[in-house]
């Protein structure tokens, strides 16, 4: 009985995605071709990975608003190394990821160690990191040519599937496996579910939260220094702007709880992000005013958050009052 109910819930995000694809498939033109589906996903790959990163914060109960900015700064660092010093790509990539991990650690220091208000700290971080990025690039758009071969790598047999997308899928699979099959993943959920109980039965929740935030930084670093600069081929000041919101929204749309302890990478954050991506590209495809998209998106997200609040209330029930 109970099992069935829950299946409907976790399936509901698939239904929404399917409905969006069908609606725009009928209404738009050439929306439902492999090429355009791939292109949307490929363009949104950084957004998807940042949503996965934000999910790790959400699972332990931290709403991290600095995810996109961490990705941005990692990308800037990697890109500038490529652009200015012509280092080999792996070195630039490693540097970008290292920046991400470091920033995740800084966040954990402020939030976990010094017990500062997580949302405000990460909000401040977001603005500061962006300022750093703009300072480094001097507010100019920088084109990175030496990643072109990587960007254009495709597999013809799969209808022109980009290699970068395959890498994204691999990362997602690994993350979900970590979440379901490792002790670390399980501890994340336990800590997010009830930190006090976790502490009482001998789980070091501060350590787990620190690890979660550093993993978040790592993923943002990958998102910035690979999926952003490689896939886009350039650094712009507005890069990844607003993605913190889209990331968290995508995660919640996919059923990740804002209060911690509940959620998945796949289907969760990934399907939720795909819903947002195809909604935007579908609306653009149908020629709906570009300005309307964020508006519609805001409302959909609001509904998703409300559903999350309802679900949480149902589960927690009387415990909340």
């Amino acid at each position: 009985m109970n099992k069935k109910k829950i299946d409907v819930y976790s399936l509901s995000s698939y239904f929404v995605l399917l409905a969006i694809l069908i609606v725009f498939g009928i209404g738009g033109n050439n929306f439902l071709t492999l090429k355009s589906l791939y292109a949307t996903m490929n363009n949104g790959s950084a957004q998807i990975l940042i949503a996965c990163a934000a999910t790790f914060g959400l699972l332990v109960g931290i709403i991290d608003l600095s995810v996109a900015a961490i990705g941005y700064l990692s990308g800037v660092v990697a890109g500038m190394l490529l652009h200015l010093y012509n280092v080999p790509y792996p070195v630039a990539f490693a540097a970008g990821v290292a920046v991400g991990v470091f920033l995740g650690w800084v966040n954990s220091l402020l939030i976990v160690k010094f017990k500062m208000n997580g949302m405000l700290v990460t909000f401040g971080m977001m603005l500061v990191l962006r300022a750093f990025g703009r300072l480094f690039t001097n507010d100019k758009t920088i084109t990175i040519d030496n990643v072109k071969p990587m960007r254009q790598a495709r597999i013809a047999a799969l209808g022109g599937l980009q290699v970068s997308l395959i890498i994204l899928v691999l990362i997602i699979v690994i993350l979900q496996l970590v979440l379901t099959y490792t002790a670390f993943g399980r501890k994340l959920l336990l800590v997010g579910c009830d930190e006090n109980v976790a502490n009482r039965i001998g789980i070091n929740s501060d350590k787990i939260k620190t690890q979660a935030l550093m993993l978040e930084g790592l993923l943002c670093g990958i998102a910035g220094s690979f999926f952003w600069i490689v896939v886009q081929g350039s650094i712009v000041t507005s890069g990844l702007n607003g993605y913190e919101f889209l990331a968290i929204a995508g995660a919640v749309l996919g059923g990740v709880s804002l209060l911690g302890g509940r959620g998945t990478i796949f289907p969760g954050a990934v399907i939720g992000s795909l819903i947002l991506l195809y909604l935007a590209s579908g609306m653009a495809n149908m020629g709906i005013d570009l300005f309307v998209t964020p508006f519609v998106r805001g409302i959909i997200i609001f509904i998703a958050m409300y559903v999350d609040a309802l679900r949480t209330r149902k589960i927690m029930g009387n415990r909340m009052s």
Partner: peptide, 18 residues
């Protein structure tokens, strides 16, 4: 509706900008 303040106002931020 007992929603999280940060998230509600974040949505309002997008809606307002939109």
């Amino acid at each position: 509706l007992k929603m999280v303040p940060m998230v509600v106002t974040l949505s309002m931020m997008t809606v307002g900008t939109g």
